[in-house]
Design a binder for these strands. Structure first.
Length: 269
DNA sequence: TCTAGGTCCTGTTTTACTTCA
DNA sequence: ATTGAAGTAAAACAGGACCTA
């Protein structure tokens, strides 16, 4: 699995931050009946949703459950299907609050959904999905972020929507999910950058100290050069026996490779 | 190899709704 | 209390890429 977890060498947060190489490999999405192909070009792949279940744009788990509970209760006396759509069709008075994360959930909901009769012909009639429909869609999205034609058709029938609407909803939902994940990644990168910056400052300071130490003829200059070794990790001078490779006097050379403050610590010596 | 049909992604537009002065 | 502008979320759309038959 790319992305999270495999780039621990860079950052011990366990989160990979290789934005440019997210898609070296891609999971199969068997639910959709269509295997997602390895992404070519610069397309971004959807691959985090199942890994980060908390990163949904829908209601949080608790809110989600409470909604479900309430809806289930509300729907108890009714038929199990959403054929009751017309019951909240054309109502323009109901108040609603989208059940976003952390937001309160109002029972009532605005639904300007028009009846199915005028589906045809009208150019673009935007319909707000009902809470029940949204919940079911979210439920399905949790299981699989893509739909095969059968699932799409079944969902459409269950929700009294057109298959196209279900399809569009899933498309938009995937886009939202990905956007959210991008924001999370961005935040992580920021934090990592901050950490690296502070580590860099610290190392610069340490370097300055070592340089000044060198200029003021340090004690270990009195030692035979052969007794001084360089720590391979942090390149600090260490006293000790000759390791064979370190025959030079005290030197500070730039590290050739990327320094990872998480996996290496110069203070570890 | 070419083509048609289908799906997905991405960006954009449109619309419903909220907030605030 | 009302109203209208601005902002926001989401439904819908368009177009291109890609896959499969």
């Amino acid at each position: 699995m790319m992305g999270f977890g495999t780039t621990d060498d860079l950052c011990n947060t366990g989160l990979g931050l290789e934005l440019g190489s997210f898609h070296a490999e891609q999971e199969n999405c068997s639910q959709s009946g269509r295997l997602l192909q390895p992404i070519k070009k610069n397309k971004l792949a959807l691959k985090y949703d199942h890994m980060l279940p908390s990163l949904t744009l829908g209601p949080s788990e608790e809110v989600y459950r409470s909604i479900r509970k309430k809806i289930d209760a509300d729907l108890q006396p009714q038929a199990s299907s959403f054929s009751a759509v017309s019951s909240f069709s054309n109502s323009s008075i109901k108040k609603e609050r989208e059940f976003g994360i952390g937001e309160e959930v109002d029972v009532e909901r605005v639904s300007s959904r028009v009846s199915d009769e005028d589906e045809e012909g009208s150019p673009r009639k935007k319909l707000r999905l009902t809470k029940e429909q949204s919940v079911v869609l979210e439920d399905n999205f949790k299981d699989h972020s893509t739909l095969n034609p059968k699932q799409k058709q079944a969902l459409a029938e269950q929700l009294n929507l057109r298959p196209r609407q279900v399809e569009v909803w899933f498309q938009n939902r995937r886009a939202r999910s990905k956007l959210k994940q991008t924001e999370v990644d961005c935040e992580l990168l920021k934090k990592c950058c901050e950490t690296l910056t502070s580590e860099n400052k610290r190392l610069q300071k340490e370097l300055q100290e070592l340089k000044s130490l060198k200029l003021s003829s340090p004690v270990y200059m009195q030692l035979p050069a052969a007794t001084l070794t360089m720590c391979p990790s942090c390149e600090r001078i260490c006293g000790g026996s000759d390791q064979g490779s370190s025959t030079s006097t005290f030197t500070v050379r730039p590290k050739p490779n990327f320094y990872n403050p998480y996996t290496h610590s110069s203070a570890a010596c």
